[in-house]
């Protein structure tokens, strides 16, 4: 994907308003994890508009977004910075990123596609298998939840899986 094609792809996914960004930084100043990021959200939008694809996609910031949408509520230009993050996540995933963050999203979506619902036990187990360093905190939480009777091994499977599969097949490549 060329630099121009990258910019155009993010704009296609996240909206034309991105072109109107005035770099005011309202998004970054509203962000609850901004202090942990390498590039602020404002800077990410800048990188997108300049077509600096590899820098944008390598940014840890993409995965520190909690999807809280405060940036989206506040942008004076009506840009949805969270949608820019989602577009960048989507491009990373399409390009086969194997980071722990991308693997978490893939496991999550695979589970919806195969069962229709999320089972927290299966989700945690699948994630811990791929990311062994996460196993300890996951087990620690599992023990706490188990002691409170809040672990279910039977999340059930949705009956309308044909419908779910059609939704993934027809809309999944948008």
């Amino acid at each position: 994907m060329s630099e121009v094609a990258f910019t155009e792809e993010v704009i296609r996914l996240a909206g034309d308003e991105i072109r109107t960004c005035i770099q005011c930084g309202t998004c970054s100043s509203s962000c609850s994890t901004a202090h942990l990021m390498d590039n602020s959200i404002r800077k990410l939008v800048h990188l997108v508009l300049e077509g600096r694809k590899s820098e944008a996609l390598a940014s840890e910031s993409i995965w520190l977004c909690t999807s809280c949408l405060l940036c989206t509520v506040r942008c004076p230009r009506g840009i949805r910075p969270k949608a820019v993050i989602s577009a960048l996540r989507q491009i990373c995933e399409r390009e086969g990123s194997v980071s722990r963050d991308a693997s978490f999203e893939k496991i999550f979506m695979d589970q919806i596609r195969s069962r229709g619902r999320i089972s927290e036990v299966l989700l945690s187990a699948a994630y811990a298998l791929r990311n062994p360093d996460a196993a300890v905190p996951i087990m620690e939480m599992g023990i706490e939840l188990l002691s409170r009777g809040k672990v279910s091994l039977n999340a059930g499977v949705v009956k309308g899986m044909d419908e779910i599969e059609r939704i993934f097949r027809e809309l999944g490549n948008d």
């Binding site: 996914l13 909690t66 999807s67 949608a83 993050i85 989602s86 577009a87 996540r89 989507q90 995933e93 978490f104 999203e105 999550f108 979506m109 919806i112 229709g116 619902r117 999320i118 949705v158 309308g160 779910i164 809309l171 999944g172 948008d174």
Partner: peptide, 11 residues
Amino acid sequence: SCCGATHVPNE
């Protein structure tokens, strides 16, 4: 079925 939560980046 699941609403997708915050983990489906394809809008």
